[in-house]
Structures are given as C-alpha cells and as structure tokens.
Nucleic acid binder design. Structure first.
Length: 680
DNA sequence: AAGGAGGGTTTTTTT
DNA sequence: AACCCTCCTT
C-alpha cells in the first residue's frame, strides 16, 4: 500500500476499487485527477493491459493531461499506452472504420458550428422562413436538443406545441437531408450514428466491447442522454465502470447534459460502490466558505460539504467599478503591480468571465500595460475568416460534395463566379438530382452561362481536380500541396485587397501561415497521413494548432477565459469579473427557468473554486453593450454569498457568521494595493 | 460581377 | 462597435 501513500483514505479506497460500477463523488479541489491516474496505475498493476482501459474525458485538453500524468506515474517502461479519448473522438475512431454500414461515405466531413449555421440557414431558406422568424443558431440548438433526446427528424413534428416548433421540425428534416447529401455529420451525429451503429450491427458492438475491460469517465455530471446510452452499450459485458464527477459543477445542461445521470448512478448500474471525496486541498477556508454559502442555495443536490485544509487564508475581496473599462484597468494595474513588486508570476493569475464579449476591454488593458496574457479557448482567435476560408478549401478537396464549403470557396477569392452563376448551377444540379460539385463538373451543355462565367467555372473545376489528385496521390506531401494551393489562388493578394492596414495584413498572413504549419505538423506526426483524417481531427480539436495552444496554456502569461473553459483548472489568484445581473446570472437564464438560474449559480461556484489563495470578485455599475452604456445591477449571487440567509436562527452555529460585506467603491484613479479593500 | 454605401442586427456557455 | 445583408452604381 505504500505506493498509495500520497492519497488520503477515501482517495485510496477509490483508487483501489477496481471491479464493478464505482461512483466517485469528487468535490472541487479534492484531488480527483490524482485518484483517476492512481486508479489507472492500480488497474495496470493488477494485470490489466494499459490499452484495455478506456478513459473518457470531456475535453481534449483533459485527455492530453490525463495521458501525460499517467505515463509519468507508470514510468517509461510500459510501451502500450492507456486509451484516453473524448466521447467525440472515440466515436470518430469507430465511425472512421464502420460508417459505410450506415450509408455514409468513408470520407465523411464533420461540420463545425459555422458549417452547421450555413446548413441551418439553407434549410430555413428552403422552407421560406426568414432569418428574423427563426435564427439559424436557435434552430441548431433546437435540433441538438432533439438529437440528444433521441428524436429523429421524422418524428420531431409529432410532439410540437406551437408553430415555431413545427417550423423547426420541418427545417430539421431539411437540415438532416442536406447534411446527408453533403456527406457530412454534425457533432451530435457523431454520437448518434455510433449508437445507431451499435444497435444495428451487434457484431460491431461486440468487437468494440471486446477491445477493453474497463471504462472510466471523468466529469460524469456532464453526460447527456446519448452519451449515457453509449456508456451502457460499452460496459454491458463487464460493468467495470468508474465514473467521477461533482453534481455541483454541472454546467452544460444547455447542451443536453443531465445531472440525473450522476444523481441516479446507483440505480442505473447494479452493485454500485460510492466513494465521496470531500477534503479540499485547493482553496483556502475563506474561499471555500463563500463557495459553500453560494451553492447551498441550489435545490436537489447531493448535500455535501467541502472540508478546507488550507486555513486562515486572506479574505475574499469584492470591488465595484464605474464601468467595464475601469474594471479592466484596475485589475490589470493590480496584476502588473503584483508581478513587478511582489514577485508574483503572470501564470499565477486567471481572469474569469461569463461571456466572450467581456475579454475585449481586458485585452486592450493587458496590451497597454505590457502584461503577457492569453485568451484561452475563446473562438476569439484573431480572425477566423482566413482559417475558415482555407479549411473550406481543404474540405472540398477531401469531399467535393460538401456543399457548405463549396459555396464558401467558389468565389473566394473573387474569380468571376458570382451569385447568379452559382445559383444557376446549383438549381440545375438539384433538378438533376446531383450534388453541386458533380453538376459543376459535368456542366450540361444546355445550361446557358455567359462565356466569361463558363470559363471561370471550368477553370475552377480544373483547379479543384488538380489539387484533389495531388492530395490523393501524395498524402505525405500534404503540407507542400496546401502551400502551393494557397499560392495558386493568390490568397495573399486577396488579403492585401481586403485589408489596407499593415498590422492587419501581417496578422492575417500569420494565421494563414499557422494553418499551413499545422498541416505540415500533422503530416510529420501521423503514421499514415490523409487529408480526411487531418480534417476530422481538427474539427474536434478546435482548428487551432493544439501544440501551440498547449504551450500558451503552460507559458508564463495571465490566462483569460470563460467560466466554462476554466473547469478543471486552478490558479493561485483568480479575478471573477462582471458579477452583475444579466451577465452572471445571464439574462437568458433569468428569463428562463429556475433550473437555469441554478446552473448559473453552479457556474459561479466553478469560478470561485478555481482560486487557490486569492479571490477577487468585481462588478461594473454600468456596462457597454451594442455600443450603448447601460446601468447594471449587482448579481444576486453576491447577496447569497455575503449576506446572512433569511432564516438563520435555527442553529446555534454562530461561528459560521456571514462575512459582512460592504461594497468598496473604487474610483478610476484611486486604486492602489495598500488601500484596496480586504473584505474580512 | 464587383465593390461600396447604408441600414439593421447582435452576444451565453462548446464537443 | 463590429458584422452582415441588401441595394446601388460602375
């Protein structure tokens, strides 16, 4: 047992319970990751081959981290690596081999959010619903909810309550047909098609089941219905399932995650053992106190209390500022001061926020005050336009029936194929029952196009075919091919045409370069490179070069991220900004159900429990939105954290006195560390 | 077909 | 404020 000396008794129990269903209820900062890696090591020591253990994580980042930590723990000697994967990439691996059984092309494309929107827009247009009546984004969310609930396009219209639902159901059918004929799947389809595959082809299922003996799932509170079904299918022969999670950190309800999976785990899997981890080693007592006070306002949770092990930490601070600019300026100034005078490292700091519009003022302050920072995860990678353009080219080379991508590139950069020509070609193709691409390739003689347009179309078809061949014939040289393509379409000239400022041009070229480099990178690392595989990987790993992102996350800079993106991380010093009604809780949740408010509360809880030593909350009294400044009210969560609950006299536990709080006003010029408030 | 002006709209969170 | 769409001119 000495090898588990670093674990406390419950952790040890969790790490050594190897067979049968195991539920580990692990609160924030209780050493969950450590337990998972130790358990993996124990499994291997008990004689299980590493590659017969499948661990599922929620994000790619978590997967990479788990791989690293396990191989550290196991040492170099083991050759076979444990299988660590996200639900989505696991499904892609299965589908890459088997999807043809379901009538999809082997080189299926994965549509990301942007592609989905284009597809949704097209579906809505087809049934003559304007963007105003129903936004493509809303349609996608609704479709996703249907998919996660297992409702197929055929049956979506059965249980509709209103006209808008009915229209959405019709659009859902169009959307799905469109994806199918484009040979494309969306993120939800990846999961759905996999369980379909398993249901329809038991031999495939048993082959996959036979590939491993143990399944571990991290962040189990975030599983949705389809993922749950997949888990059931996978563990059915042996029930060696270990799930780890915390119902208080369930923050993905909006995309179908269902807390009841973790709450009712023992009912779903017979003979479940439960281990609770409640010893928190991350946060100080002060931080944990307000976290506990906040989250106990939520109904229907596993009532647990985190026990602090870091006593007498500094108080949690709360500031209110005039507006978001002052908020940003003061926070950055404090960070700069702490780095310069008190030996703090930029990497010690994280600034957390609710929405992706919030980092803007912060970013410009960080730049102005020369503090190194990085926005983690946000789609805000400078412009994605170039990346998206070039990715669309790659997608077309891999799968020319991908209509969304084809439409994006057909006249980008402008090559004389305008909307009229595209429209004619597309309509004709639809009439002939062909895809956009085949219709273009075998352009019917009776389709009258102006000579100029016809020449351009032919030249374009030619270009695509030439590069398609190149990609197929020499997959090893993918990088060179793409570089040559970018050259051939004169994309640099396009950038010059579109942007007149030098910085802009440099930045845009850099992102083109980044993409090309990531292709080179991929060919170097892949055993058997193929464009399809590159595309499928990058759809799941967020397009941006991952290794680069890793460096940035590890690098010595202040991290800026959304609360969602912060899950699973920890920092010595955390600033949680924008504690305002409408932002946290978000307006859309306030207008919604109390369950949505509860999720916002958990979101705040997640943010607070990221902090190891210092936590600073703040809000602005007025905030700019859509170019207009509007007053903002303090978040209800502040009250819940800092004021006494209404009926407090039912207990003699007067030591748990609520922390008295007054707002500390900070005028734009007056903040210095010495006088900044330390709220008891 | 291309490019520019003007007007309307937008932002929750992400694999 | 930034983006997208539409309409207008060339």
């Amino acid at each position: 047992m000495e090898r588990l000396a670093h674990l406390n008794p419950p952790q040890r129990l969790a790490a050594t319970t190897l067979a049968g269903p195991l539920l580990v209820l692990a609160g924030a900062g209780t050493g969950k990751t450590r337990v998972i890696t130790y358990r993996m090591a124990e499994l291997i020591r008990s004689g299980i081959a590493p590659n017969r253990i499948l661990s599922v994580t929620f994000t790619n980042k978590a997967a990479r981290e788990m791989k690293e930590r396990t191989s550290e723990l196991l040492g170099k000697k083991t050759r076979a690596k444990p299988m660590v994967s996200t639900f989505h990439s696991f499904c892609v691996k299965v589908l890459r081999r088997e999807i043809e059984a379901l009538g999809y092309p082997k080189k299926f494309a994965i549509y990301d959010r942007g592609d989905q929107e284009s597809a949704a827009r097209r579906a809505l247009r087809e049934i003559k619903v304007s963007d105003k009546q129903m936004k493509p984004g809303d349609l996608i969310n609704r479709i996703s909810r249907w998919k996660m609930g297992g409702v197929s396009p055929t049956f979506a219209s059965d249980n509709v309550e209103n006209d808008s639902d009915f229209l959405a159901a019709v659009a859902y059918r169009k959307y799905q047909n469109f994806l199918r004929s484009s040979g494309a799947v969306d993120f939800d389809d990846l999961l759905l098609l996999t369980i379909d595959l398993f249901d329809q082809f038991p031999d495939v299922l048993s082959r996959v089941q036979g590939a491993f003996d143990h399944l571990q799932i991290d962040e189990y509170q975030d599983t949705n219905g389809v993922q749950f079904r997949l888990v059931q299918q996978l563990v059915e022969p042996h029930n060696n399932l270990c799930v780890v999670g915390d119902d208080d950190q369930s923050i993905y309800g909006w995309r179908g995650a269902d807390v009841s999976h973790i709450l009712n785990f023992h009912q779903h899997f017979e003979g479940t053992k439960v281990v609770r981890l409640e010893d928190n080693y991350r946060c100080t007592d002060r931080i944990l106190e307000i976290a506990n006070r906040l989250v106990r306002n939520n109904p229907g949770r596993h009532d647990k209390k985190l026990i602090p092990h870091k006593m007498s930490g500094p108080g949690v601070r709360y500031f209110k500022y005039q507006d978001e600019t002052v908020e940003a300026e003061s926070i950055v100034r404090e960070i700069a001061y702490l780095i310069k005078e008190l030996d703090a490292q930029p990497r010690d700091f994280a600034v957390l926020f609710r929405t992706n519009e919030q980092p803007r003022p912060l970013e410009s302050e960080f730049r102005r005050q020369l503090v190194p920072y990085i926005v983690v995860g946000g789609q805000s990678f400078f412009d994605r336009r170039e990346t998206r353009d070039l990715m669309a080219y790659l997608k077309v080379l891999a799968n020319p029936s991908d209509e969304v991508s084809m439409r994006r590139i057909i006249n980008t950069p402008a090559r004389g194929i305008g909307t009229t020509t595209s429209q004619k070609l597309l309509e004709r193709a639809v009439r002939d029952g062909q895809t956009f691409w085949t219709g273009m390739k075998n352009r019917p003689a009776d389709l009258k196009l102006p000579t100029r347009a016809a020449t351009s179309v032919d030249a374009f078809v030619n270009l695509i075919q030439r590069y398609r061949n190149a990609v197929q014939q020499d997959p090893e040289a993918l990088g060179e091919t793409i570089e040559s393509l970018v050259d051939a379409i004169r994309y640099d000239d396009e950038i010059d045409r579109q942007y007149s400022e030098d910085d802009q041009r440099v930045a845009r070229r850099a992102s083109v370069r980044e993409l090309i480099d990531s292709v080179y990178d991929y060919t170097r690392r892949a055993d058997e490179p193929s464009l399809t595989e590159y595309l499928q990987e990058s759809a799941l790993t967020d397009q941006v070069d991952e290794s680069d992102k890793d460096d940035q996350l590890a690098g010595n800079s202040v991290k800026l991220m959304t609360l969602h993106a912060s899950k699973g991380l920890e920092f010595p010093r955390v600033y949680l900004v924008g504690m305002e009604e409408g932002l946290l809780p978000h307006r859309r949740s306030i207008e919604g159900t109390s369950a949505q408010i509860a999720e916002e509360r958990r979101l705040a809880y997640v943010g607070i429990t990221r902090a190891q030593d210092y936590l600073t909350l703040s809000r602005a009294m007025a905030r700019r939105k859509f170019g207009k400044t509007r007053p903002a009210q303090p978040s209800r969560f502040l009250r819940e954290m800092f004021e006494a609950p209404p009926n407090i006299n039912d207990t003699d536990d007067s030591s748990a006195t609520p922390q008295p709080v007054e707002e500390i006003s900070v005028a734009s010029e007056s903040l210095s560390i010495a006088e900044s408030g330390d709220l008891q």
